[in-house]
Write a protein that binds this DNA or RNA. Sequence first.
RNA 1: GGGCCGUUAGCUCAGUCGGUAGAGCACCUGCCUUUUAAGCAGGGAGUCGCUGGUUCGAGACCAGCACGGCCCA
Length: 488
Amino acid sequence: MERPEETVQGAQMRQNLEELRALGVEPYPRRFERTHVAEQIHEGFEQLEETEAVIAGRLTAIRGHGKAGFADLRDGSGRIQVYVRKDEIGEEAFAAWKLLDVGDIVGVRGEVFRTRAGEVSVKAAEITLLAKALLPLPEKFHGLKDKEQRYRQRYLDLIANEEVRQVFAGRSVVLSTAREFLEKRGYMEVETPILQPLYGGAFAEPFETHHHALDLTLYLRIADELYLKRLIVGGFERVFEIGKDFRNEGMDRTHCPEFTQLELYEAYADYNDMMELTEELFESIALRLHGATSFEYGEFTIDLKRPWKRLRVMDAVADAVGADALKDPTALFEAARSKGVDIEAGAGFGACVEKILDQLVEPNLMEPTFLIDYPREISPLAKQTPYDPEIVERFEVFVAGLELGNSFSELNDPDEQLRRFEAQVAKRAEGDPEAHGMDEDFVTALMHGMPPTGGLGLGIDRMVMLFTGAPGIRDVILFPPMRPDRKE
RNA sequence: GGGCCGUUAGCUCAGUCGGUAGAGCACCUGCCUUUUAAGCAGGGAGUCGCUGGUUCGAGACCAGCACGGCCCA
């Protein structure tokens, strides 16, 4: 990264700063009172024409014209043109205007009018420098394309690429719509610990840290689940939390070690209720963002109109590798291998199912689909189905091939929960680093009685990808994690 | 972790067979009082990611490293 003094253009901009100071211009003044934003002037032009407006924003283009000039000024609402005439603002002010650069933040007071070419503009009577820029902006036509620089200097990405602003505006809509939707249904927003002495609620390796005062190893949460269910025990019947979870794993198009999850729990409900809630929530967001339940994602047209497809996991697996393969783990393993599933030797039944889903089933789930009823073995927090104790009431939800959420009828039998934890602990002892740990205190909570409960976790980042058409998770996270820049 | 690709002016990108660095935008100078990717004329701007190697000569070829991207695990 060049320092301003090291580039010709940066040096020029700094020189302009010094010359402005010499003219008595303060380049970094304090506050500025504006009367309008760009959008208001465009929308209210009929009423505002020939009246005075005060606007402020960044100069994104300057078109000099001898003793006059035009500039594009961009504020948070949009863009508006500024027209400057030497005979209107005077000799001195015009000299100062000539020293402004693209990128500077300015305030402009002047009359609203329409140019000969028909563009709504503000004719400057007074221009106030509000912040002098000392580095040039990316090129106006092609924008900023270098992915590395876009992520490292997201502010430049936001200035240069309008569609990036739209993605993050969409993210905000997803969050606010979800909050509003849940609050209307009587849900209460809560906050549970991010630093946890035990981590659980998902299969993942955690980030580990140390608290000096307590001399205690703590883990950044991998899920909110076990604390939220304690709140259901405590008598809050509908709770949700939106927050960051952390999983110590690699990054790819759909994974980021630090990601945002919405988790919610509802007493006296089950996973069927959670499916309906999911459908309704997604519909609300789609209507808010796109005005319809259907919209484009990449080359696909997605329609979120409910009801969504429901597909039993074991049916999907039978479909993928043949029904005969379901009779025992060995047969399933062989069948998976023969279909080209990458799977390690010695994988059990549950692990085989997971790999088959992962590689043969899920990537093809383009239309909204609930994959339902998972093997108990790979779902230690979910309640068994009435029809088969080896199968639990659980679903994962997929749209456009994206895994967006996970839900159970929550296991509330403390003895069964203890047995499930013990089975997980055995797996961890066998060397599975992602197996669930024992949480005695959580079992104690269940012993005090947790009502039947439906729970749901939704990956906010992936939902934002879906709703905004963003190709990757890094494109919906403002500052994705990066290695430090060590270029020399 | 593996494979492939990328890194050249502030930005977007060319750079042929290894022969001494290019364009557009941006910037500077001049002209220009309704332009809008303003225009016209002229100009300046580079540690070609880093380190080493091959060569008379490397942006280009080779090796290593750094950072990033895509795909796979």
